[in-house]
Design a binder for these strands. Sequence first.
DNA 1: GACTAGCATTCTCGAAAAATGAATTGTTGC
DNA 2: GCAACAATTCATTTTTCGAGAATGCTAGTC
Lengths: 296, 296
Amino acid sequence: MELSDIQTFAAVARTGGITRAAEELNTVQSNVTQRVKALEAEIGTPLFERHSRGMTLTGAGKRLLPYAQRMAALSREAVLAARDDGEPKGPLAIGSMETTAAVRLPPLLADFHRRFPAVRLSLRTATTADLVAGVLEGTLDGAFVAGPIAHADLTATSAFREELVLVSAQRWSSLAELRAGTPESGPTALVFRTGCTYRQRLEQVFVEFGWPSAARFELGTLDGMIGCVAADMGVTLLPRTVVERSAMNGSVSIHPLSTSHARVETLFIQRSAGHQYSALQGFAACLKTDDDVIAA
Amino acid sequence: MELSDIQTFAAVARTGGITRAAEELNTVQSNVTQRVKALEAEIGTPLFERHSRGMTLTGAGKRLLPYAQRMAALSREAVLAARDDGEPKGPLAIGSMETTAAVRLPPLLADFHRRFPAVRLSLRTATTADLVAGVLEGTLDGAFVAGPIAHADLTATSAFREELVLVSAQRWSSLAELRAGTPESGPTALVFRTGCTYRQRLEQVFVEFGWPSAARFELGTLDGMIGCVAADMGVTLLPRTVVERSAMNGSVSIHPLSTSHARVETLFIQRSAGHQYSALQGFAACLKTDDDVIAA
DNA sequence: GACTAGCATTCTCGAAAAATGAATTGTTGC
DNA sequence: GCAACAATTCATTTTTCGAGAATGCTAGTC
């Protein structure tokens, strides 16, 4: 049993079909079929049920899958651990929420790059849910997500505390005015795609304001969001710092919320198990010193 | 990076040489050289220091080794887990101390085989230290060892309670007589090889009796040990049940010890992490019922 | 009920990778 | 300096792997 077989198996399990797995692995179907068959022969039991619309895992396949994932993750970590001589260097994949990336990260990344120029840092922005998944499966080394997070395989350290505020167009100078001036069902909610924690918060706030069925408008970028708010397309929920440092700051109104809704903690998460990757350690160290500055 | 490369690497690390590793892997040196070189090229750093008497791990190699071992163990477990449909069957490797194997295991194994005839059980006897290592590295599925054991990756359940007794030749009818009749430095201690817990206990007892520098005589088998005691070559420490059921029971004297020295618990250990292997579960179930009988 | 689309499997051929065995280099101990 | 041992290099054979075309199977559609 070779690792490539295991990865082929995992790809088929994930995509649910030989054809799709082949595409993902940059190869042809016949190849994938053969690898899967070889694996089944070696283990001595079928791993998939074949039907016209693809393949689904058998019991044996389901039992094998977690091992396959752990082995794949281990092999990635192994290489990093071997290469890692204690000096932070090499690739480091960090994930972040869009809002954190916009305001909090620039000074932090600058500091990190100054201290550890040998690290090739890459930054991916996504929703909290996607980021957690990314860290767990090993495609990200660490990520900034909205707390709270409780997962046995993740270590979380508090990175930033944010105050979430409701943002509307300039013309609504207070929450009361906004509530009076919008239709019964409430203003349009400008939200990020599903998986974003701030979106969940906004849903809660809307329910409390009596706007459970207000219209939703989904946007992909932070700038687009603030721009739409300024144009009075609707309202949204964002960290105060994000709005204040935005170029559109003058064109929007900020409405504070009660502490229970407003307080949100940004956590830095990393996998708890395994070797401490030096580049990641260096990053965490930067975060620590920065954090102290913020706390002071 | 393939699993076979990892296993080649581990074999070289363990044996300390290409030639010996090649022999172990049933291949030729040149092959091993190439696999190791390929692995080093892939990781981008040397894993071994070459010198005239073989190879030793570099820092990178040392960091890689634990990953290699875990990956090898995982791949073994993965196959078992996939094959395991809940019905106990297939191979099951159990380890045991020699003494436990002699007295406690025969009825247990008979019971197990009656209930789960499809399991191909293999038994290896070794010292507690070796058995713990064997279970941790995955060459054993479970083992009977002398307690106490505390290791995060092991789960231990109490299997038997033994009373350790000092055993001497027939002619010494009491401990007092033995102490009077032997030279100042004490009788010869008949011991198993290093790693045996009973040996450590015997050392403690000898220190307390004022015989810290008594002669040691190392033996490999239980029968040899009792035979030597009967022939008055020295004394040893064994569970009471072992001596009583031995064929030489009539030719030796049993001397009870204080509770602190006498009490020893035999634990059944297995890896805590990962899939519950059905055959092992079945074995643990047998142990449980048997244990109840003994306790009654 | 034939037709079609989608998907997995089978087969063959060529390329790449791994294993082999012999020759080579280098070190150590006598 | 020679014998013994160990790793590397190289040419050769063997095995495995991947691409591509053809085949077979199933379900949904007209």
